[in-house]
Design a protein around this nucleic acid. Structure first.
Length: 781
DNA sequence: CGTAGGATGTTTTTT
DNA sequence: ACATCCTACG
């Protein structure tokens, strides 16, 4: 964002600040804004919809608006509700507001994600939801384990009705703001022969027993409380004088209802609610986001002012043109036209076709190194992938190259087993009713408490409608447990009592250390001989260290439930690798967009499940990807890719064809088996009919060409990925095959190897003629 | 009760 | 390819 260095590094205006000084400050922060932006900042009263295209200074408007409200003393920080979708966005806003107004950030307790604010409100009124204020927030994993227990208790075959599927249904219902009683019979019927609603109700009841809430509840319970207790809602009406919502196009029905309830303190036409969004960047439809929310804002809040931000300060006109042309293929949009303000045509976009994903990674690595030699920083480059499994190969390549990279949103720290175990201990200390956590660690490390014992605990808990810990206490009074297990459990509970007591007089991070020691958990990993156990011990230390940043154990646990991402340290120069979804809102000089292949991007699954809407969402994702680039956008596609262990050949993504040819260079190609030909777009310049007759430059192409030069005409070389690569006990670069050997191929039948190149074999098939195939497609005849 | 090894499902995206 | 779940055995 081209915001000039901000001159506002000054303390917040104190009571003695003069009118004049304030007027001056106002001038300062309004300075670099264009007319529309300024209007969006100054229109503080009444409903306002800001349609902000990519790179038009959306965050700047939001933060300046808050700064404006604060400096004008229209409201205090605690009276502004400001919701974002992701933690990253919330963090960034806090930072930028801090820069604008100085120290006031701590005074913005209601700036956060929907879920963190929902949790905050729910904790205050927990008793109205049959919870205690220290309730545990369940993640998907816990949720599924709980559902499994329920299915088990109901004698529902988990094979036929997978817990995961029910978890998804629950999510959908909760995202739509539906309580058990609101679920339609049709919806209910779609699981376990009509038992859906009952299970939902049982699940909710079980959550109360465990003193727990899932993600959906954080908002849904808010909504229920607001509806059932008008005095509570009235309190928040008084509290929130201004409401701001970021990325409104990503909000779902529950979030919409939540906002609408909170905005009801005034007549709709006077509500001080400002939503900012871009329908072209709506990419969360799959988890219940309703673009409709943004489309009907004017109906919900009559008289709402609508401001469009269309001046793009980020990308060159070539990039902008490519993105606009692409997104114009979508039917359902409000329609905005981005105008460049950068004033540079810039480089053309490039599309590179490579043989496989390995070569794609190599290609990207080379280019990055080349730019680096030209003095560009790694921080200014990013690789945006459709699916996280694309990351691995890139990482491997960068490791061999010694190229610094960072992965955003990859495997999460808090999802590691050892971390989750440690947290389970802490959760039980904080909330002894948390049966899921108790169950997780009751026999970790091994204490000789096996399935049958745990089953007994479960049965007792269910019969008494209570949690595992108190069920255990009950059992200890009886003879039902075998003596050995009885002693073990008694000791374990005594330990937990002891730890809970210690929490009063000890910093929680010291307690955590003692817990890990005394429970034998640390010792367990120390005794473990596997190569990753040192790393796990290191992670545990890191966990304890990170606890020091929090005031209380509760605060820490809240953080890890809601803020799953780690703070990314940007100190080092490194290339960023992340998914397109997590790239929204970011920008880089150079953006690499690998994997533009049919099936992967647009994702087959998305199209299967949502049809045209799915495709349009994928296209918006492509739009997001391209508009991340400021100066340079490089797309690529691999003709062959290994997905879940099997090779698949792919066609270029239709999105490539939708790019305007005049701003795209088709750099190196060699794509498109099967004679498939696209129309007039950029991909029109791929030589699909016979890719082996043009001049190409990539090493991969030349290799392919060397192998296949003799292939003429012949049928389309379509390969329906089938055989899983066999693990062969031969050095990695040596092929298990040799020339002259007879082999069998699922599609082409028997043949004889005529040449070997890496994992690619040229084979003279008895029936199909000479073909080049991947080694993993054939077996020895 | 615990373990090893095989069968199975899974992953597109995230709070 | 990977992780989790399941089953058979010690």
């Amino acid at each position: 964002m081209p915001s000039p260095a901000n001159p506002l590094e000054r303390p917040a205006p104190g009571p003695i600040t003069s009118q004049l000084a304030r007027a001056q400050a106002k001038l300062d922060y309004l300075k670099g804004l264009n007319d529309e932006q300024r209007e969006a900042v100054l229109t503080t009263e009444g409903p306002l919809l800001v349609l902000a295209g990519a790179g038009t200074g959306k965050t700047r408007v939001l933060t300046t608006r808050i700064a404006h409200i604060l400096t004008e003393r229209k409201a205090r920080g605690s009276e502004i509700l400001s919701v974002t979708f992701t933690n990253k966005a919330a963090r960034e806003m806090k930072e930028r507001i801090g820069k604008l107004v100085g120290s006031t950030v701590e005074g913005m307790p209601w700036l956060g994600t929907f879920h963190s604010i929902g949790a905050r409100i729910l904790r205050r009124h927990a008793e109205l939801a049959d919870l205690k204020s220290d309730f545990t927030i369940l993640d998907t994993d816990d949720q599924i384990r709980l559902i499994k227990q329920l299915l088990d208790a109901e004698n529902i075959d988990e094979k036929r009705w997978p817990a995961r599927q029910f978890a998804n249904m629950l999510d959908t219902w909760k995202n739509r703001g539906l309580l058990p009683k609101d679920v339609s019979p049709a919806d209910s019927g779609s699981f376990a022969n009509g038992r859906g609603t009952r299970l939902y109700a049982d699940y909710q009841a079980r959550l109360k027993v465990l003193n727990a809430a899932d993600f959906g509840d954080l908002l849904l319970e808010n909504i229920r409380i607001f509806r059932e207790y008008p005095d509570v809602l009235a309190h928040y009406h008084r509290q929130f004088k201004y409401m701001l919502v970021d990325e409104y196009q990503d909000s779902n029905v529950a979030q919409y209802l939540w906002l609408r309830l909170l905005a009801q303190g005034k007549p709709a036409s006077e509500a001080n609610i400002c939503v900012v969004g871009d329908d072209d960047q709506s990419i969360y439809g799959w988890r219940g986001a309703e673009v409709d929310n943004i489309l009907r804002f004017e109906k919900d809040f009559p008289g709402a002012k609508v401001i469009k931000l269309e001046r793009n300060y980020r990308s060159t006109s070539n990039i902008l043109k490519a993105a606009s042309t692409l997104i114009a293929n979508n039917e359902s949009r409000l329609g905005k036209t981005l105008q460049t303000d950068v004033g540079e045509t810039g480089e053309k976009l490039t599309v590179t076709s490579v043989w496989d994903s390995e070569e794609e990674a190599r290609q990207i690595g080379e280019e990055i190194e080349q730019y680096q030699r030209q003095g560009e920083s790694l921080n200014s480059m990013a690789i945006l992938v459709r699916a996280s499994h694309q990351m691995r190969e890139l990482e491997e390549r960068f490791i061999t190259l010694g190229l610094n990279y960072r992965v955003i949103g990859g495997p999460r720290f808090y999802e590691r087993k050892e971390i989750r175990d440690a947290i389970a201990y802490l959760r039980v200390i904080a909330n002894p009713a948390d049966s899921l956590s108790f169950e997780r660690i009751v026999n970790v490390p091994k204490r000789g408490l096996g399935d049958s014992t745990v089953q007994l605990l479960h049965n007792t808990a269910r019969a008494a409608n209570t949690n595992l810990v108190s069920a255990t206490r009950m059992l200890l009074e009886t003879e039902e447990l075998k003596p050995k297990q009885r002693t073990t459990l008694r000791e374990l509970l005594a330990q937990f009592d002891d730890w809970s007591a210690r929490l009063q007089g000890l910093p929680h991070y010291e307690l955590a250390e003692q817990v890990l020691d005394e429970s034998g958990y640390t010792a367990m990993w120390q005794a473990d001989k596997s190569p990753d156990s040192p790393g796990r011990l290191e992670n545990l230390k890191e966990l304890v260290r990170s606890m020091e940043e929090f005031e209380t154990l509760g605060g820490f646990l809240e953080h890890i439930s809601l803020v799953m991402d780690r703070d990314t340290v940007e100190a080092e120069d490194a290339v960023t690798i992340m998914t397109l979804h997590s790239a929204k809102g970011l920008e880089y000089d150079t953006v690499f967009l690998p994997g533009w292949e049919e099936g992967l991007f647009p994702s087959q699954r998305s199209m299967d499940e949502l049809g045209r809407a799915g495709l349009e969402e994928e296209r918006r994702l492509a739009y997001v990807g391209i508009t991340r680039g400021k100066k340079r956008v490089r797309l690529s596609m691999a003709q062959n890719r290994r997905i879940r262990g099997l090779w698949q050949s792919a066609l270029p993504s239709r999105f490539i064809d939708e790019l305007p040819p005049e701003v795209v260079d088709v750099k190196d190609t060699g794509s498109g088996y099967g004679g498939y030909t696209y129309g007039g777009g950029a991909a029109g310049r791929f030589n699909f009919a016979d890719p082996f007759e043009s001049v190409y430059n990539t090493p991969g192409w030349q290799r392919a060409k060397a192998q296949q030069s003799s292939r003429k005409g012949g049928g389309p070389l379509t390969i329906e990925g089938e055989l899983v690569a066999r693990s062969v006990d031969i050095g990695s670069d040596r092929s298990p095959y040799e020339t002259g050997q007879r082999v069998f191929h699922l599609k082409f039948g028997y043949g004889e190897i005529s040449a070997i190149e890496g994992n690619k074999l040229t084979i003279d098939f008895d029936k199909a003629g000479r073909k080049k195939v991947l080694e993993s497609f054939v077996s020895k005849a």
